[in-house]
Design a protein around this nucleic acid. Sequence first.
DNA 1: GCGACAG
DNA 2: ATCTTGTCGC
Length: 229
Amino acid sequence: MNFLDLHRWDVTPLEAIEIQNRLRRQLILDQAPAVIRTIAGVDVSNAFGSNRLFAAVVVLDLQHPQPKGFPILEVATASLEVAFPYVPGLLSFREIPVVLKAWEKLQIRPDCLMADGQGIAHPRRIGIASHLGLLVDLPSIGCGKTRLIGAHREPGPLQGEWSPLIDRGETIGAVLRTRDGVSPVFISPGHRMTLDRAVEIVLSSQLRYRLPEPTRMAHQLVNEARRAA
DNA sequence: GCGACAG
DNA sequence: ATCTTGTCGC
């Protein structure tokens, strides 16, 4: 398998795993951006048993919060018919193609991206947030609503409290309470990111909902795009 | 062999 | 992921 193969999407599950094993070595996890001015939220929507996927990317201005939320600097959407099925651990190969199609329309290059799913909290330490961060060469954060792998204690009930997510003796993420009393989200560094910075950035992009604004807005926008289609 | 399993 | 608005509960 040569370098070009790492950019093919019409692969078998076995080939996908091999690509992940090669790509994971390129991840940078010992440094993170000190300041984030703009952040992109990424989400994908898929209609009930269909292979027609929709993606939305929304760029938010974290530096100038308004009463209603963070200013939306840009939105890009796309749709695509895909063949790769949903396989736990191989989500990237189903969802990233349509995300890249939307991403290419973006005029702004954000400082960071946040994806709906895991970063390194993945069996091979390369979830969709890590994979996407590598492809667009940006710091990235995974923000999943549920767990893929790892064990953890129940985090404290207050906003900002978190418990480490641990797999094979390694801390791979944080189970973070984003608001008092809500069920926690699963945060993990994706690429060019550390866990502590990921948690800080998530909390700084937090408004009054369970999900941080980047993924919450992206989820809202992708559903609008899908209904309009 | 059995259970778990992002979206 | 998705079918779905108002409604029950802290």
